[in-house]
Design a binder for these strands. Structure first.
Lengths: 218, 218
DNA sequence: GCACTTATTTTTCACTTGATAAACAACGGA
DNA sequence: TCCGTTGTTTATCAAGTGAAAAATAAGTGC
């Protein structure tokens, strides 16, 4: 089984295998640290991986670097690029846009491991957590307010009023806390997530319209 | 400086001193674990207290018992008994009641140490955290729904519909997350807490009324 | 001043932690 | 078959962990 072009590809194939192993390490480490917190021991993690502890240090120079890799795995690439367009797609009413967005978004983040890493890292005060929250504000809440104002016939305003942002945060936090109760605290919650989102949006949009003395088309 | 009644009071005064010291330990331990998490070392804690590490074991049989004491200090006695009456005081409109309640309640729990211990213990899955959340549902959200229905002229319903509870949780979680952003993530937020609460209640109550096709007196 | 209790520190233990270096095993190419 | 590269384990280290025992300091009642 000799290859025609062995010299450039053969070493690359080996490196790829290494990358796959590395990926497996990160994946399992995410689950592990999600359960144990970042204080979890490297030996226990290695046992979970079915390897010995020093092997971890062949792939990551330190535990901290492994944790950084977990951060990246958890925080980055969660956001689907089409969501930006969805939120701003004025061919459909804002309620339907928000419903679709929040269903997809919560599908992506309502996951025990994700939520736990989110809070563990947030409690540690790491930068990537603040970066993520800034992204939420920029890509969800600001468009949400802008689109609401447009749909309600209010004059556009950029940047949005801090008060409006704060109101959007109450909605965001309210929906988010549903996931926290279900996946972190493991409490019994209403199981129909779509319904929870629908009701939350219903109350929020009607309340915001009333707050501004306007009406929005259903 | 001899005392007239030394025999019964003198030993009690010593015990009192011990209790005071114990209290100081718990108090400082709360701050310490709030910052470091429960993985924080006993030596570092002792240094913060200005004593040596083995002394902790004179007052608490184990680190875990000290942590339990911290839980009790944090979770118990936060709830002011008058809040129950406040929420049900039908001599004032529900909006004012909720405004007053949430201002007082958030004054009590929007505290860096409290919120961090809340999440550290919640992530650990300890029982007292679940107990606390059950209390929130019983003493805040259920009355809130019941009082809203009364004020809106809707038939009383006990227990409240799960859907209504879930809606109340969105409000609760939304307000709570304001504290999380400010005191845990330390992000810049709207500083006027009363205003945030007022707006959140405004939108929620108007939205809920619209949701049920009713009106509530301002 | 003296005996006795009690608060506190010093010393120490057994174990766990992250991390390193050396030994070993597998495998691919000549 | 041997060689060298590489993935993996074994053995080990120094520092830090919760906890206990022993030694010391500081009162307290008589």
């Amino acid at each position: 089984m000799t290859r025609l072009e062995p010299s450039p590809t053969a070493p690359r194939r080996k490196r790829l295998t290494v990358e796959a192993r590395r990926e497996e390490f990160i994946c399992k480490a995410t689950e592990f640290f999600a359960e144990e917190g970042f204080g979890g021991g490297t030996r226990e993690l290695a046992a979970k991986l079915g390897v010995t502890q020093p092997l971890l240090y062949r792939y990551f120079p330190s535990k901290e670097e492994l944790i950084q890799a977990v951060y990246r795995r958890v925080y980055l690439d969660r956001w689907k690029p089409e969501w930006d367009a969805l939120l701003k797609d004025r061919t459909q009413p804002i309620r339907r846009r928000l419903q679709r967005f929040y269903e997809a978004y919560t599908d992506a983040i309502f996951d025990r491991a994700w939520l736990r890493i989110y809070f563990f890292s947030g409690l540690k005060g790491v930068e990537i957590n603040r970066w993520y929250i800034a992204m939420v504000e920029t890509r969800i809440l600001k468009p949400l307010i802008a689109e609401f104002r447009h749909e309600a016939g209010l004059a556009p305003r950029d940047p949005p009023a801090p008060e409006d942002l704060e109101l959007a945060w109450v909605l965001q936090g309210g929906i988010f806390y549903y996931g926290v109760r279900k996946f972190i605290f493991e409490l019994p919650v209403e199981e129909d997530k779509s319904r929870v989102i629908a009701n939350a949006l219903d109350v929020f949009l009607a309340g915001l319209a009333s707050h501004y003395g306007v009406t929005i088309p259903p």
